[in-house]
Amino acid sequence: MFSESCLHRRGCNGAQDLEGVCAEHGVIKKNLVASLQDMANKSLLDSRLLEWADSLRVLGNQGAHFTGDAVSREDASDALALAEAILDYLYVLTAQFEEFKQRRTKKGQGQSHTDGS
């Protein structure tokens, strides 16, 4: 398990990681939530991930700036889970889906189709 301070630092780094991912996809806005919103508008990101990111926005502000409010272990873990989910969605699931579509296209080209009777 991670210590509290490690989770807190990792949560902050997760936001930086996501800003880099947005930039890699050509999206650079005034803040991370605006960048993620733009990615969702471009159908690069699922709306549920955007909703999750927006819900954790306050947490990110607490982690990035001294507010006097402690970031809980659960919130820090959620921030890490969100970052992992976004990375999985953009890189792992997208690649798997593209491979699936290519495989199905090739399979369809190699077979003649009948009317099913």
Rank of each mutant, 00 (worst) to 15 (best):
I28C: 13
A23I: 03
A15G: 06
K101E: 13
V58I: 08
D78N: 12
N41S: 12
C12A: 14
S112Y: 10
E19W: 02
D54H: 07
M1G: 15
V27Q: 01
G60L: 03
S3E: 13
T67H: 13
K106G: 11
Y91G: 04
A23Y: 03
R104D: 12
L49W: 00
N61H: 15
Y91C: 07
S117L: 11
A34K: 14
K101L: 13
L32A: 02
S43P: 02
C22R: 00
D78E: 08
Q96C: 08
G11Y: 05
A81T: 06
D54P: 01
N13S: 10
L59W: 02
L90M: 09
G11K: 02
G20L: 07
E4N: 14
A85R: 00
R9W: 04
L50S: 07
K42N: 14
N13L: 12
G60V: 01
Y91M: 06
I86F: 00
D17H: 12
L59E: 04
Y89C: 04
S47M: 08
Q102G: 09
T67N: 10
G11D: 01
H25P: 01
V33M: 07
S35D: 02
I86H: 00
V71L: 14
R57H: 09
N31C: 07
S77I: 09
H113A: 11
A23T: 06
G14I: 02
F97V: 07
L87F: 04
N13Q: 09
E74R: 14
L45G: 00
L32K: 01
D38R: 13
R48G: 04
C12W: 06
D75L: 09
D78F: 06
V33W: 03
S72A: 08
G116W: 15
E19C: 10
S5P: 10
G14K: 01
Q37M: 10
H25N: 11
V58L: 13
K101D: 08
L32D: 01
S43L: 06
L49N: 03
A79H: 01
T114H: 15
S112N: 11
V92K: 11
G63T: 03
E4A: 10
L82S: 01
V92N: 13
D38A: 15
Q111I: 15
K29P: 00
R103V: 04
C22N: 01
G26A: 03
L18H: 00
T94R: 15
A34M: 14
G68F: 09
V58D: 15
Q62S: 07
D115Y: 10
L45A: 00
V21A: 00
V58H: 15
R73V: 07
G20H: 06
L32N: 06
A40T: 09
A64Q: 15
E51W: 05
T105H: 13
E4L: 11
F2Y: 10
Q109C: 11
K42R: 15
S72E: 05
E4V: 07
A81Y: 04
G110F: 08
E98T: 12
N61W: 05
Q16K: 06
E19Q: 06
H65L: 07
C6T: 11
R48Q: 11
D88N: 11
G63F: 02
E99A: 15
E84F: 09
L87M: 14
M39I: 05
S72P: 01
L18W: 00
T67Q: 10
L59M: 13
